[in-house]
Design a protein around this nucleic acid. Structure first.
Length: 838
DNA sequence: ACTTGTCG
């Protein structure tokens, strides 16, 4: 066969396809991956149809344009024969006429046919390559002003440069998503930056860890003991140590230890601890990492803690109390009760009275203590006292004066539902995109309005609190609402806890329970757990709670029986919520969901409509959990709904499988590619249940859950129940949870707040330190401190290392910091804070 | 060998 011979002959040549892009079938908006339909002009492959589908990572591919794709033919199980391109380039016109047409096309605005002809006359048919290689050649072209020259060069280089970069990134092994993120960050400098220091990626790009960067560095010939490598490992470990535990700082010993582990597990090479410590000093010197009082901080977290301090002080310096002379506040509250048809408890009245006159106020309280009721009362009273309308129609042309916000979409939605007023996530309120945690420019945008209420404040981390507080203008009243016993923020810090602990801000805790009826043993259980113990009657059955003793592998069967009985008594899947701390394992969420689905929504006959996604099956009637926010459709992360219809691809208009899910009042359609935004909800994680309550909660707790056996999780889980609580599992697991106090996070926010320093502070990385300061630093602190015993040999070795070497050539650095000094508190607190300006 | 938030 001639064609076969042909193929063999060119077997070593990379298959290519040249052709015009007819259509872009699909492009992933968040990365470079695209599916193109291409009209084949030329190919060395065996493909002989007129059009071909080409997939791959492409930059700015445009319809109608012609490209040369290199790659291979593949037989896709669903879509048939396709061409997978691993590199491509724009096919440049070669004949003089083609080049003229190309240059005078609207791709080059301002370049007409005449100019194009002049260029080709002067530079010839390969004018485009010439310009790309050396833009100077355009200087010879007469009648071309600077602006047109720029258009030509930029356009030619842009299409050329981008594809080179994408190919370069692919060759380093970055997939489409990462390649896109990297390109977004570095643009045209991408490859230069990577070649110069691949470790930079670890700092700048999310999801690139030390190992990945180290592999590239290895390829590029970076030595295993090169300073760049050691520094990268230190910064990476600092991040890991702080973020994994929610701390805002760590100490030298654990940091160096962790760094060694990271370095030596990535490449088989023994690192000299002295050299590593040396690089740590360098990093401090370069202000890439902050050292203060022995504590080592991620720069942005150090700045954020100071920033919060500054903002809080600024807000506290305003007048201490807001006065409403013409109003009698207790009387107004009574009027409010009448109007809303409710009756506040004594502590609720007190909270409203105090909050309404405080420029800054914190309201805390456990579930069922009526935080929401009080919040509502304050909103109404604020409007009343200030003569404000709460009718949105009155604000068509001005800003609504009361801002309601929360760290999660679901909490924000709840505020909106209970107040009837607009509310949003804090991110939306501030116009943040959720990724500016690091050293991005801080916005100086100010919020507008008279009152800001933030709910679920315990879930606000240090970065976000800083950004939020910065944006509060002078005249705005602020109130934080939260429950410090629930799950802490995902990000580092424990802002609400520290703010309360510092005792600078007026605050009040609600203690009376309004939710459950009298004699509820769930609430007393919650209180005991909060205080770190299980009640004596823990395993006894009460009218509203019970305990079933069993092992992990029996959990599924125990819950099956409990649920079957509950179902027979008329409980619906909406009434019953199984909560578990983790997904995997015999008593994990995944297994329990499958079992629950079999009870509530089986397909015994095998004839029901069902669709599969990953390991899950969905049927009409299934209870569904939403996993991401979708404010446009009023559906938020943590919302639960029910599948009301399934449309198979062959029946659907656009030939993809569809689910319709009913959430409260609205129905939302999910195409198959959005099914990762939902999951089954019969059983969900305790984390996801935060902010919801259920008639009956079934809570398994077994040793298998390991590190998830924590007090805050147990507390959050049991307080989700409004009527019935069924506990099952091992007593020892419950016991362990109760004892494991959610390890208090390491932060210095409270210290900052209590430091007698109310000057607004900013950290200027370009600042240099003065020698005068240096000297005082050294002599300032010689307080003694007890010495900790060294644990591991590695540590012991590091401890001998002198952290700061004397830099003789630079008198301004003429001090010597040793680990011993760090330990004995002989370091001035202000190191790394030079340039702080009032 | 754990879970979790925000945004485009």
């Amino acid at each position: 066969m001639a064609e076969q011979e042909n193929l063999d002959l060119f077997a070593t040549e990379t298959p290519y396809v040249v052709g015009q892009v007819v259509a872009i079938f699909y492009q992933n908006p968040t990365n470079f991956y695209k599916v193109l339909l291409v009209r084949v002009a030329e190919t060395n492959s065996t493909y002989d149809d007129k059009e071909i589908v080409i997939t791959g990572n492409f930059g700015q591919v445009q319809e109608e344009e012609t490209y040369r794709f290199f790659g291979k033919l593949v037989d896709h199980p669903k879509f048939g024969v396709q061409f997978t391109a691993d590199r491509y380039k724009q096919e440049k016109p070669t004949s003089a006429a083609g080049v003229v047409a190309y240059l005078s096309s609207d791709k080059f605005p301002g370049i007409g046919k005449k100019t194009a002809e002049t260029i080709v006359q002067l530079l010839g048919e390969n004018a485009i390559d010439k310009i790309s290689e050396n833009p100077e050649v355009l200087a010879e072209v007469k009648g071309l002003n600077a602006k047109k020259r720029e258009v030509l060069v930029n356009t030619i280089q842009a299409s050329d440069g981008m594809e080179k970069i994408i190919i370069g990134l692919n060759s380093y092994g970055f997939g489409s998503q990462l390649a896109y993120n990297i390109y977004q960050t570095y643009q045209g400098e991408t490859l230069d930056i990577i070649q110069e220091n691949p470790y930079q990626l670890v700092q700048d790009i999310e999801n690139i860890g030390f190992k990945k960067a180290d592999a590239i560095a290895d390829q590029l010939g970076f030595a295993a003991d090169s300073p760049a490598r050691l520094k990268a490992a230190i910064l990476y470990s600092l991040n890991e140590l702080c973020l994994s535990q929610g701390n805002t700082y760590t100490l030298a010993e654990p940091l160096l230890e962790e760094s060694l582990k990271v370095l030596e597990s990535s490449r088989a090479f023994i690192i000299d601890p002295d050299a590593l410590a040396e690089e740590l000093l360098q990093l401090i010197e370069e202000n890439q990492l902050i050292e203060d009082q022995h504590k080592l901080y991620i720069k942005s977290l150090y700045a954020a803690e100071w920033g919060i301090n500054t903002s809080i002080k600024r807000l506290l310096e305003r007048k201490k109390e807001i006065t409403y002379n013409s109003h009698d506040i207790p009387k107004e509250i009574r009027k409010l009760e009448k109007r809303l048809g409710i009756s506040y408890g004594a502590s609720q009245i007190q909270a409203i009275e105090e909050a309404i006159v405080s420029p800054l106020f914190i309201l805390t309280g456990g579930p069922g203590t009526g935080k929401t009721t009080v919040l509502n009362g304050i909103v109404s009273l604020f409007a009343e006292l200030n003569g404000l309308s709460l009718d949105l129609n009155d604000y068509s042309d001005k800003v609504f004066p009361i801002l309601l916000a929360a760290p999660t979409g679901r909490a924000a939605k709840r505020m909106n539902e209970t107040t009837g007023l607009p509310s949003s996530t804090i991110h939306r309120l501030l116009g943040l995109n959720g990724r500016e945690n690091n050293n991005d420019e801080q916005s100086d945008r100010e919020l507008e309005g008279g009152l800001l209420i933030v709910d679920e404040m315990s879930m606000v981390d240090t970065w976000l609190a800083n950004q939020l507080l910065r944006a509060v203008p002078e005249h705005m009243q602020v109130m934080f609402v939260g429950d410090k016993n629930q799950l802490p923020s995902v990000g580092p810090g424990q802002v609400l806890h520290d703010l309360i602990d510092a005792q600078l801000i007026p605050n009040m805790e609600l203690n009376e329970i309004y939710r459950q009826g009298d004699g509820s043993s769930i609430i007393s259980l919650a209180h005991e757990i909060k205080d770190g113990q299980l009640p004596n009657d823990f395993t006894q059955n009460k009218k509203d709670r019970s305990f079933i003793n069993c092992y992990a592998y029996q959990i599924e069967e125990v819950i099956r029986q409990v649920v079957a009985k509950a179902k027979a008594k008329g409980f619906t899947p909406q009434d019953i919520q199984v909560l578990a701390p983790m997904y995997r394992g015999p008593a994990g969420i995944d297994a329990l969901n499958k079992m629950m689905q079999e009870i509530f929504n089986p397909n015994d006959t095998g004839r029901r409509k069902e669709v599969k996604f990953n390991d899950r099956i969905y049927r009409i009637g299934d209870k569904i959990l939403q996993l991401v926010n979708n404010p446009e459709l009023n559906v938020f992360n943590g919302d639960m709904g029910e599948i009301t219809s399934i449309t198979y691809a062959k029946e659907a208009d656009d030939k993809v499988d569809e689910l319709v899910i009913q959430f409260d009042a609205n129905e939302v359609t999910y195409k198959r590619n959005e099914w990762n935004k939902i999951t089954l909800a019969y059983c969900c994680s305790i984390h996801k249940s935060q902010g919801s309550e259920f008639k009956m909660v079934i809570l398994p707790m077994v040793q298998n859950y390991g590190r998830m056996l924590r007090r805050d999780l147990l507390y959050t889980a049991i307080t989700r129940s409004s009527e019935l609580l069924i506990l099952c599992g091992e007593v020892s697991a419950f016991q362990e949870s109760v004892l494991k106090s959610s390890a208090t996070r390491l932060t210095t926010l409270k210290e900052r707040l209590l430091e007698d320093n109310d000057a607004p502070l900013t950290i200027d990385s370009s600042a240099t330190r003065s020698s005068v300061e240096k000297k005082t630093e050294l002599t300032a602190g010689t307080r003694s401190n007890e010495t900790k015993p060294a644990a591991a040999p590695v540590q012991a070795k590091i401890e001998e290392v002198s952290l700061f070497e004397t830099a003789e050539e630079e008198p301004s650095l003429s001090y010597r910091l040793t680990v011993e000094m760090i330990r004995t508190n002989a370091v001035d607190p202000m190191i790394g804070m030079e340039g702080i300006t009032p």
